[in-house]
Simulated scan of single mutants.
Amino acid sequence: MLKIGCHLSISKGYYKAGLDALAIDANTFQFFTRNPRGGSAKKIDLKDIEKFTKLFNENGFAPLFAHGPYTMNLCSDKRDIRDFAKNVFKEDLERLKLLPESYYIFHPGSHVGQGVEKGIDYIVEAMNDAIKEDCETTVLLEGMSGKGTEIGGRLEELKLIIDGVKHNKKVGICIDSCHLYSAGYDVVKDLDGVIEEIDKSVGMDKLMAVHLNDSKMEFASNKDRHEVLGKGTLGKEAIINIINHPLLKDLVFNLETPNELDGYKNEIAFLKANYKE
């Protein structure tokens, strides 16, 4: 069974988001843990979570994608920004204990000129501060497009971070088809080769989730611009190959394409029609 969803708003609660997911034939969804451009988190509604958990279990949802805010830069050159990011990280992991199974996905951050090595040191420090031996949530570093000074555009950087985390049993990566292509990993012409690189650099056992997006940008552009499936530089054939690859097809996929619910519904129908059980 294809495990597929899209990014949904939880402004009206998790239960409403769950109903929206079911209405478009999704069996998971992604949400922001808090204001993606700020830092505030919505007050927890235990009754809403109870209703959603029942819905989740009754409908066989796959793990959710809980996405950290864009303002969370664990490797900033400014101490106050790093401290803010650390607090967000720890608070989000605590809040996720109340929800059904979720993957916590976040952008590693931008070193803003300090250098990759220093940036990775800061990220590892923050993750070791937040992730304890009894951590219940799977934490996933998102692979990036490599724009500017962001960390995570190279698979080797993700591996260095994971290796630096003391309690890393539940730490892995989430790949993004658009980001990979923009970072110079050719998922269109050499998907097998890219998967071999993932296995060699990070390990397939650490690949837990996929953001499925087409791209507005050319190969190796290092620019992050998502496109509707089949309308970008990856194209429909590459997307179909990704969801059917033997080493990827059982992972959880979520769409971050520029769509409303109707658009996501059409994309999910297209993917299910082309998925080989």
Rank of each mutant, 00 (worst) to 15 (best):
G230Y: 07
V171F: 06
H245F: 12
K54Y: 08
L2F: 12
I81N: 07
Y70C: 09
R79G: 00
M204Y: 12
C174G: 05
L141I: 13
A209H: 15
D92P: 02
Y70V: 09
L64W: 07
L155D: 04
F29Q: 02
K276C: 00
A126W: 02
G146C: 05
A17L: 08
N259Q: 15
G5M: 08
L2E: 12
K200M: 00
T33M: 03
N254S: 15
K47Q: 14
K43S: 13
L19C: 07
T149R: 09
F31P: 10
N27Y: 03
V124R: 01
Y122V: 00
K249Y: 05
S40V: 13
K206D: 06
C135P: 06
D48S: 11
I49P: 00
V112M: 13
K236E: 15
D176H: 08
R225A: 06
K166W: 02
E156W: 01
L160Q: 14
G113V: 12
A183C: 01
D214R: 06
D134F: 09
Y15L: 14
T233E: 14
D199I: 08
G115Y: 06
Y15A: 08
G152P: 08
G143D: 06
A17N: 11
K86A: 10
K231D: 04
I173H: 04
N266M: 01
Y264H: 03
A130H: 03
D20K: 13
V116R: 05
Y103M: 06
N35L: 13
L261P: 01
S182A: 15
F253N: 11
C178L: 12
Y181L: 07
Q30T: 00
H111N: 11
I4E: 01
V188A: 07
G39I: 02
I81S: 10
G113C: 09
N87D: 14
E136I: 11
G152Y: 03
T71F: 04
H111T: 01
L46V: 14
E197Q: 15
V88P: 00
T138L: 10
K223P: 00
L212V: 04
R95V: 05
K3Y: 13
K200N: 07
L141Q: 14
N254A: 13
Y264T: 00
Y14V: 10
D186N: 15
V252C: 13
P108I: 08
L99T: 05
G109W: 09
D176C: 11
P100V: 01
M144I: 02
I243E: 08
M204F: 15
V165H: 02
G263W: 09
L234Y: 05
L229F: 10
F61D: 04
H245A: 11
D83I: 11
K47C: 02
R154K: 15
Y122H: 10
K43G: 07
G13C: 12
C75M: 09
H107P: 01
K42H: 12
N274W: 04
Y103P: 08
G172R: 06
E156M: 00
V88L: 13
L99A: 07
H211P: 14
Y181H: 13
I10H: 03
G172S: 11
M127G: 05
L271Q: 04
S177E: 09
Y185M: 10
N73C: 10
Q114Y: 00
K189C: 11
N59V: 08
A17D: 10
